[in-house]
Design a binder for these strands. Structure first.
Lengths: 198, 198
DNA sequence: GTTTTATGCAACCACGCACTTGCATCCACA
DNA sequence: TGTGGATGCAAGTGCGTGGTTGCATAAAAC
């Protein structure tokens, strides 16, 4: 066989284009071209576009292991690792999650694609849940807590992506975790040392 | 003229379909059909699909006035009004903002559509900014603060929209505002009265 | 050295899309 | 009564899409 195609390449291109242009916008022709293979080969390996995307997402997201979100007893450290991990993923592929979440309602065939990302989200949720049970975090549904932690970053980056002229800041993971833990209220008798000037 | 078409109807249908199916998915045929007018009429009134969407968004979002987000000096009350207002908008049209934010990078012709929604976001940001200047909220870039306030709700509803089986809760505006202000840390010496059981 | 197997290539298909054209129709208003 | 502007309707255009087919080709497997 003349070229021995590495699926990894295809997956990577597929992910990138999916995030950049959405499901409809990431055409099979474009994916094939950027992966430097023939479009027909694409359909021979994965029989439809939906299956291609599913395989790509499962492969890329599947590398995120549950051990990447440990429970050490140090909330701040654990949350920092979660947020930093998310930011790392974003820097690889961009805002994959919001794009996927926004696309799925209109492309039911993409539903199975959700599985892998949600495994990660619930893994994160379990860590938060343990801190709730330990009396360290206020109790709330785990996925709601995850939204509280990652939602602000996700939305902020989406805004930046929609209008680059905004020049929005990318807040440090520390600031995100701090806001998640302590809130934004400037308590008169300050209980945190790191009250910083913008 | 045989029917005297009310633009309001068209706008409403356009918004709904845009949120439900995205820009590409909201076809002009479908919009025309659901608005019970002829597709050709659509193109005669608004010369392109992009302009139609722009007009619809400007009309619907334009009704949100700056006075809807007052600065009264009572943070909790003001934030509650903001969050409740957002939730009201969501119940009318669904998750319009995330959908728009996700679509814009792939459809540059939609860029001008952002103006109206961003006017609202910066209006909200100004309120938060005033509370920062008053020493009540921690300083941070206004749009970042807005993301902190609305991001969690947006992401949570997106998750629910992507997988209805999750049966995610819709947290009360009070809970959202509380988390924004005080964070999720369960401080040993509780400083808030409303620590509630899940 | 022959047979698999994986790829490339060119052409094609049917479909849905945004958008256009030409003409008939209806109602308001003068 | 008539006229003009706003609508409807049927048909069509050009294009990009996901997906298919048939055949040539090159490397691996045996």
């Amino acid at each position: 066989m003349p070229k021995q195609i590495a699926d990894e390449d295809i997956f990577h291109v597929t992910m990138r284009l999916f995030v950049e242009r959405g499901y409809a916008g990431a055409t099979t022709r474009q994916i094939a071209e950027e992966a430097e293979i023939n479009e027909v080969t694409l359909f021979r390996k994965f029989s439809s576009k939906a299956e291609l995307v599913a395989a790509a997402v499962a492969h890329e997201v599947g590398r995120i292991a549950e051990e990447d979100f440990p429970y050490t007893g140090d909330v701040e450290a654990d949350l920092l690792q979660i947020v930093s991990g998310y930011r790392g993923a974003v820097s690889r592929y961009g805002e994959f999650l919001p794009v996927l979440l926004a696309e799925i309602p209109r492309h039911p065939e993409l539903r199975p694609v959700l599985q892998a990302p949600f495994r990660v989200l619930t893994a994160i949720g379990r860590v938060l849940e343990r801190y709730q049970e330990a009396g360290i975090l206020r109790p709330e549904p785990p996925l709601q807590a995850v939204s509280g932690l990652l939602g602000p970053v996700m939305v902020l980056t989406m805004m930046g992506g929609a209008d680059p002229d905004l020049a929005l800041p990318s807040p440090e993971p520390e600031a995100i975790v701090a806001a998640f833990l302590h809130g934004r209220l400037e308590t008169g008798s300050e209980r945190r040392e790191d009250r910083r000037i913008p």
